[in-house]
Structures are given as structure tokens and as C-alpha cells.
Design a protein around this nucleic acid. Structure first.
Length: 833
DNA sequence: GCATTCT
DNA sequence: AGAATGCAACGCCGT
DNA sequence: ACGGCG
């Protein structure tokens, strides 16, 4: 294997030191994971993707640049490796040199290979994560040419949580904010700025000896008022970024210069194309969820060895959220109105990069506060739009509005107040398998609420506390952590206790065991997450506009989105029939007129939160079956183009004991009136045998009759029971029913299929959609609905959920809970026969 | 619909 | 890249 | 032994 550094030969051969500003060394301690994308206006304007491996930058020329759309593959020509320091190079390469022209750092950050890169280069496939300012998430480079020496690759964005959720990258450098054209044309934003500032008749002031102190906030509450603007409050270090006489300072609140600790920010300050300015902002480090994480920032701040700092600048990079500019090019902006200053600030900063402009919302503070709270942000800062910057002052022109948090906690004890009241509750949350005490809360509930909660708690009285409590209050009564309460609080204290907790309500709908400990400040977190932040577990629904059911008379075409809408709306009725049961998908990726296939085995690409269960299928081979136990799982499966979902009659806990026996009434030429007649006959038979039984449409043209078994029979016995019932029916209605499998021999009679009772056999799940032109669904029916005029096709994906909402209850309620006395039923059926 | 393999 | 391919299964019964 | 059926 060639060493990375040795192969820099080509790079050196093409360039002459002293004549080009490009670097020639690899001196940076990066931790081996920097990537950069240069935009290079040389003979042709193009992009270069460079990935650090073994001390050099593997490079690809990407003529059209990267695309954030997975469908958009971009040619990438593999070129000679570059020295690592190249990732910090931005500038003009003079005429006459190799690659003469302007080059900007279009994006930069950390790259995380997801497979061995050396091997990948050899095999022609690299898979990696990018964590830049513009590019995020999973990418691949694949070699396309037929031979191994081909230099032609493709750069492809892989499907992930970032796709479609990030804005189109802006064209500017993430460092200087210059476009490649501006750099080439020698644009001088500083000169333009000076001209404009002079014209605005601002007095030019001598720079003060010492930098201004930061303006401070008073506390406030959310409000809506014209003349005010609202900014997100970032959870980090307040910094003043100062550029003067070619030097850069990052001053913390205490006046310490922390530029050496955050070189990536200092570098960005130095790269802005202005000579003299002071920015006010907040330094943050993002957590795995993409929100500012104070504990990560503290981790970062503790790193001081230069080598460690350089690595951390790539792996745990800081951002500076700038919200004010105090002076610019020798002009004092502090007396100017806030919004004027912010105009300048926005003008000065790149659209994307380590230093970000903090935008604001005008007037609507209350709405903004709602949003900020929901997003888990620290809060808002309200600022008077016309206010000046008052250094070192705690002013009423700036108000900080902290977000309140709301979480559920388990009650582990109470301080009683009389027989049916309490003065406070002791609260706990689950940290893994252990309960952790989080403090006491008293206020918030009225007398009546406290009384009912007290009664509920008294039932769980316990001798032992569920978690260690540092200071046990007098008169405490411990209870088992069974009851959950919703609590609003400001934050966790350093000691891990709730600050300013207020009880909101008794969560009698939530098991206490679901009260997980929210992340608290000071919790040691993973230093670096390799996966991109997943913006919430949500199913990405694709191709919602694809036509799945063609139009029929009286109804326009239905799309995959219509089907997903059905499954989302019906989930609450359908999930009880799916939980714990293996399913089989029948997939129609291109709608009912496209190809279809069955799928038993859970595809490997399913996300890991979808449950699978290994079951022996034929001897020796096991298959991982899918189990749908949530709305998200149902939607994910439906999004795969699954139209009907077939379920086992048994659950994984008791896979050999079906919960019901099914009789499938299959016409096939027989009139539906006959199907109903046969169903009515079976209804009578089962009533006489005192066997509970339920009815649903199969979704096609037939009906299903289901008999709950209460786990008393195995699959074989269930099948025999079905056969017995079928034979009785045939004896009574020989002209209308049959168990002949061959269609010809049925002679127009209704086929009573009892053979769907058996291990691994399935039926179309209640409420599942069917691939017929009507887009009908399998619908539970009341027996009273079995009368002239019933048409199974009247229940379809467009109205099924509406029907269920209007019914008082699911007609099949009881299928999964009621059972029967098997011996009595079989005896009764024997008599009928 | 999606991964994988072939060209 | 673009195209093609796989994605289930087994017992029943009549010939 | 094969083929249609669900």
C-alpha cells in the first residue's frame, strides 16, 4: 500500500514554491478526518472534493459540484493527492502557475469513512459521512469506468435524514463569504463599506483603548409588541470577536482571549474581508441532536493542548452565532439602531460557515416563544428594534426569555397533608434500569386534583423509597413509582434536581415506567457521534403523488399518498390486530397495475426500530418476519408499496396457538347474495353452538368469519374446527356452498376455505387496503349489516377511517379477548351435524 | 421500493 | 451511470 | 408426476 505522503510527488511536480501561495506541507494535526470542497475558477470553473487519508488529501475534481439530491449523480474525476494544509487554502493562484485562478473554500468539515477507505479506493467504492457547513450526511463515491485504472467516479448523496431538509448550499466561501467571482475580480468589500459608512455621516471615532463590554439582558416574559424583535437565545459562551491591525481576538465575558482554544472560529474571523470590526455573539458546540450543547462546549473548552485543539476543531467544531456588530472599519455603530447594526452584520457575514448571522422575528414574540420551547431551545432574547448598544449595561432594551421545559416524572413519595391531600410530591425518573430522584414539587394542582391523585397514590404505598434521596423530608410516605405527573420546570440544577417545578397534571394515561430521565447539564455525553443528527424519528414518505389506483367512473385516480393517509388514519383501529403478529407484505411498488410480489423476510434495509421476529418456516430455515407495533412502522411498511397486509392468526408469544379460527367465504362467480346467505347460515350455526364469532369483509368480494379461540387450540385443531363448521354449512346449503378447491367443481357455489388455518397461514388484516379498482379495504361488520344492499366495495381507503370514527365501537371488539368453551362448542356442533 | 448485480 | 433482478410457499386434489 | 389453487 502506498503511503499517502509519498504520493504527493505529482502535486509537487506541478507547482513551484515561492511562485504560488498554495501550501506544500502537511503540518496540521487534524485527527485524520478533515474534508474540504474547493471551488476553483481555473480554466474551467469546477469543484474539488478532498478527503484526508493518511496524511494527505485524496482529491476528486467534480465539474458540476456536489448535489444534495440523491437522484443527481455527479461526475468526479480522481486526481492527484494534495497536502493536508491545502484544506486551509483559499486565495488566488497567479497567472502562469498550474491551476491559475481563484479558489475558495466552498465547504469544510469532518468526514467519517463508513468503510475502510484504502480498500474502498481499491475496490472503487467509498462510503462516508460529511459534516460540513453546507453538506451533511451520507455520501458515496463509486468508480464507473470499466477498468480499475479508470479515473472516473460518481459522487452521490445517499438517502438519509438530511435529504430534502436542508437548503440549497449558497455559493459563497464558508470562511470569507466571497464568491469565486468576487475573489477573482479582486473585490474589496472593506473599501465599499468604508465609503457607505462615510456617506451615512457617522462620526469616525478613534478606537477606544479597551474593547466594549457586552450589553446584558434583564429577565422577561413572552410578549407580542411592535417595535420589538426576537432572537433565539443560544446556550454557549458570550464572545466578542475582534479584528484590528491584522490581529484576531475572541474575548470571553471575563475578558480572556480564547482564540487559541477555538482556532476554527479565529480563522473565520481572520478570513472575513474586512480589516477592523467587533462582533458580538455566542459561541456554541452542537450536540448530536443539532441543538447547542453546553456540556459539549465545556468539553471543548477544557481541551488546551494545541494538538488536541486542532483535532477538536474538526471533530467537535464550534459555531459562533453573531447577533451584533459594534464597530466596522473604524466607524462606531453602537449608537445606531439595532436593526441598522444587524443589516451591516448580515452584510459582513457569509451565508453559511462557522460564524452565523442570528436572524430575528419581528413583533410576534409569543408565537416565537412557543416554537422555541417546542424545539427544545434555551429561550429567546427580545430586543427593542431601535435601541442603541449600551456596553456593560443591563438594559430594559434587551430581555432574556428563558424557555420552560415540560416533562413527565414518576411519583416516588409524598409529604402527606391530612388524609386526602399532600403538600409536595417526590419525583423520580428512569435512568436506564434505575430510578433517579429529581426533587420535590408541590404547587400547581388544585384541591380536587390533589385529592384524586392522593387516593391513586395511596394504593401504591411502599416501605422503601424507589431511589436514593439525599435529604428525606419529614413525614414522607413512599410509594411505588407507578403514577406519572407532568411537570413544568425551568431547568435541572447542578445537583440534578428540578428548578422551579410546577405540577401540571396527573398523567393517568401514561405508565410511570415511561418516565425517562431527560438529559441534564453536566451529564457526560459521547464525545463524538458518528451518525448524523436524526431530526426526530419520522418515516420519510416517498412518491406520494404516484398513481396507485387508476381513475374509475365517478372517482379520480388514487395515489400512494391516499393510501398512506388511509393507513395513518386507520392505525388506531388497525394496530390492535397487528400487534405481536408476524405479517406478510404484498407489495405493489408501482400501483395495482404494476408488478407485485410477496415478501415474508424482513428486508435488511428496514430501520432497526421496526420489530422483526425470527420464525422457523420450513425445516432448517428461519425467516425474520416483520411485526408492526406502531403507526410509524405501519406507515413505513405501507410506504414500501405494501397494499394488503397479511397477518398470522397467532402472536409471537404463543406462536402455535392461534387467537381465532377463520372461515374465508370466497365467491368466484357466485353472486354476493349467496355469500351473504352462507354467512347468515354460519351465523346461525355458530349461535346455536354458542360460539362467539365476528364478521368482516375480506376486502375483495368475500367475507371472513372469525371465531375467537382463547389460545385453547393449536393450528391443526383450529383447521379441523373450521372444516367441521364448513361441512355443517354445506349439508344445510348444498347448492350455495362447497369446499371444492378446484374452481370448476364449485359450480358457482361459495367456496368455504378453512385451510387458511395453519401455522404460517395468513389472512388479509382488518382495515388493510386491497389491490382492486375500488381500493376497498377489509372492514369489520356488525351482523345487522349483513343484509340486502351490502357491498364490500363501498368500504374503501377514502372512507374507512370516517366510518370507524362514526361507529360507536369496532364491530370486532372482543375477537382478541373473548374465547369459548371448546368442548361445549364441539359437542354442540356434533349435535348439529 | 430498494438493494444488488450486471453491463 | 442505467438496466435487470429478486423479493413465498406448500399441501391439496383432480387428472 | 404434474398443474392449478389459495
Amino acid at each position: 500500500m502506498k503511503s499517502g505522503k509519498a504520493s504527493l510527488q505529482h502535486y509537487h511536480d506541478k507547482r513551484i514554491p515561492g511562485q504560488t501561495p498554495e501550501p506544500f506541507a502537511s503540518t496540521r494535526a487534524t485527527g485524520g478526518s478533515v474534508f474540504v470542497i474547493h471551488q476553483h475558477a481555473a480554466r474551467h470553473n469546477h469543484f474539488d472534493l478532498r478527503l484526508e487519508v493518511n496524511g494527505s488529501l485524496w482529491s476528486w475534481a467534480v465539474p458540476k459540484g456536489p448535489s444534495v439530491d440523491p437522484a443527481d449523480k455527479r461526475l468526479a474525476v480522481h486526481v492527484e493527492p494534495h497536502p493536508v494544509d491545502y484544506a486551509w487554502f483559499e486565495g488566488l493562484i497567479p497567472e502562469g502557475n498550474y491551476g491559475a485562478g481563484a479558489m475558495i473554500i466552498w465547504d469544510r468539515g469532518q468526514w467519517v469513512p463508513l468503510a475502510d477507505p484504502e480498500e474502498g479506493l481499491d475496490k472503487g467504492k467509498l462510503l462516508f459521512d460529511l459534516r460540513g457547513f453546507k453538506l451533511h450526511g451520507r455520501w458515496t463515491l463509486v468508480r464507473t469506468g470499466r477498468s480499475k485504472d479508470s479515473r472516473e467516479w460518481l459522487l452521490i448523496k445517499e438517502q438519509d435524514a438530511w435529504v430534502g431538509r436542508i437548503p440549497e448550499p449558497c455559493p459563497e466561501s464558508v470562511l470569507s463569504g466571497l464568491t469565486v467571482t468576487e475573489l477573482k475580480s479582486g473585490a474589496q468589500p472593506a473599501v465599499e463599506a468604508r465609503t457607505r459608512l462615510r456617506r451615512s455621516r457617522l462620526g469616525c471615532r478613534e478606537p477606544k483603548a479597551s474593547p466594549p463590554k457586552p450589553m446584558l439582558c434583564r429577565p422577561g416574559k413572552p410578549f407580542t409588541q411592535a417595535g420589538w424583535v426576537f432572537e433565539i437565545k443560544y446556550d454557549g459562551y458570550r464572545v466578542m470577536a475582534i479584528r484590528r491591525d491584522g490581529t484576531v481576538q475572541l474575548l470571553s465575558r471575563s475578558g480572556r482571549d480564547i482564540a487559541a482554544n477555538f482556532p476554527e472560529i479565529a480563522e473565520a474571523v481572520a478570513a472575513l474581508p474586512y480589516d477592523d470590526f467587533i462582533l458580538d455573539g455566542e459561541l456554541v458546540v452542537e450536540g448530536p441532536d443539532g441543538l447547542p450543547s453546553f456540556s459539549r462546549l465545556q468539553q471543548r473548552a477544557q481541551i488546551s493542548r494545541p494538538v488536541g485543539v486542532q483535532r477538536a476543531a474538526i471533530a467537535l467544531p464550534a459555531r459562533c452565532y453573531a447577533f451584533d456588530v459594534l464597530c466596522l472599519e473604524g466607524y462606531d455603530l453602537m449608537p445606531r439602531p439595532l436593526l441598522k447594526r444587524k443589516q451591516w452584520l448580515r452584510h459582513v457575514l457569509p451565508g453559511q460557515g462557522p460564524i452565523r448571522y442570528v436572524d430575528h422575528i419581528e413583533k410576534q414574540g409569543s408565537a416565537a416563544f412557543e416554537q422555541a420551547t417546542a424545539m427544545g431551545l434555551e429561550g429567546l432574547v427580545a430586543k427593542r428594534a431601535g435601541s442603541s448598544y449600551q456596553p456593560g449595561q443591563r438594559s430594559d432594551d434587551w430581555l432574556k426569555i428563558p424557555a420552560l421545559k415540560t416533562d413527565d416524572f414518576a411519583v416516588m413519595g409524598l409529604v402527606a397533608d391530612g388524609k386526602d391531600d399532600f403538600s409536595s410530591l417526590l419525583l423520580a425518573a428512569l435512568d436506564g434500569a434505575h430510578w433517579v430522584y429529581v426533587g420535590r414539587a408541590g404547587s400547581g394542582l388544585n384541591r380536587a386534583e390533589r385529592r384524586t391523585l392522593r387516593h391513586a397514590l395511596d394504593r401504591h404505598e411502599s416501605r422503601q423509597p424507589a431511589a436514593t434521596v439525599a435529604e428525606t423530608p419529614r413525614g414522607v410516605q413512599w410509594v411505588q413509582p407507578r403514577r406519572a405527573v407532568e411537570v413544568r420546570y425551568k431547568e435541572f440544577t447542578r445537583a440534578g434536581q428540578l428548578r422551579q417545578p410546577v405540577l401540571l397534571r396527573h398523567r393517568d394515561d401514561k405508565p410511570a415506567a415511561d418516565c425517562l430521565l431527560p438529559p441534564r447539564p453536566g451529564d457526560l455525553q459521547q464525545p463524538v457521534a458518528v451518525d448524523p443528527p436524526q431530526p426526530r424519528q419520522r418515516v420519510i414518505l416517498s412518491n406520494q403523488e404516484k398513481e396507485f389506483w387508476p381513475a374509475v367512473k365517478g372517482r379520480p385516480a388514487l395515489t400512494k399518498g391516499d393510501m398512506l393517509k388511509h393507513y395513518r388514519a386507520i392505525a388506531r383501529w388497525m394496530l390492535p390486530y397487528l400487534e405481536d403478529r408476524p405479517i406478510v407484505m404484498t407489495r405493489y411498488p408501482d400501483g395495482i397495475e404494476g408488478g407485485s410480489f410477496f415478501q415474508h423476510e424482513a428486508p435488511k434495509f428496514l430501520p432497526d426500530w421496526i420489530r422483526r421476529v425470527p420464525l422457523e418456516r420450513s425445516k432448517g430455515t428461519t425467516t425474520d418476519y416483520i411485526v408492526i407495533d406502531s403507526e410509524d412502522a405501519l406507515l413505513y411498511i405501507a410506504n414500501l408499496g405494501t397494499i394488503p397486509i397479511h397477518v398470522w392468526s397467532s402472536r409471537v408469544q404463543s406462536i402455535d396457538r392461534p387467537d381465532y379460527c377463520v372461515l374465508d367465504l370466497d365467491p368466484k362467480g357466485a353472486p354476493f347474495a349467496d355469500v351473504m346467505a352462507v354467512a347468515r347460515e354460519l351465523h346461525g350455526i355458530l349461535d346455536d353452538a354458542e360460539a362467539p364469532h365476528f364478521l368482516k369483509t375480506s376486502g375483495g368480494s368475500g367475507l371472513h368469519i372469525l371465531i375467537p379461540l382463547g389460545g385453547q387450540l393449536d393450528h391443526e385443531q383450529s383447521k379441523s374446527l373450521g372444516e367441521l363448521i364448513a361441512r355443517i354449512c354445506i349439508r344445510r346449503l348444498p347448492d350455495k356452498s362447497t369446499i371444492q378447491r378446484a374452481v370448476e367443481l364449485r359450480e358457482g357455489r361459495v367456496y368455504l376455505d378453512y385451510l387458511q388455518n395453519g401455522r404460517g397461514k395468513t389472512i388479509a388484516a382488518p382495515f388493510c387496503a386491497r389491490p382492486n379498482p375500488a381500493a376497498s379495504v377489509s372492514m369489520p361488520l356488525k351482523w345487522s349489516e349483513l343484509r340486502a344492499g351490502l357491498e364490500p366495495s363501498r368500504f374503501h381507503i377514502g372512507n374507512a377511517a370516517r366510518r370507524m370514527r362514526s361507529l360507536k365501537q369496532d364491530p370486532m371488539t372482543g375477537l382478541l379477548t373473548s374465547d369459548m368453551d371448546v368442548t361445549a362448542v364441539v359437542a354442540a356442533l356434533g349435535n348439529l351435524e
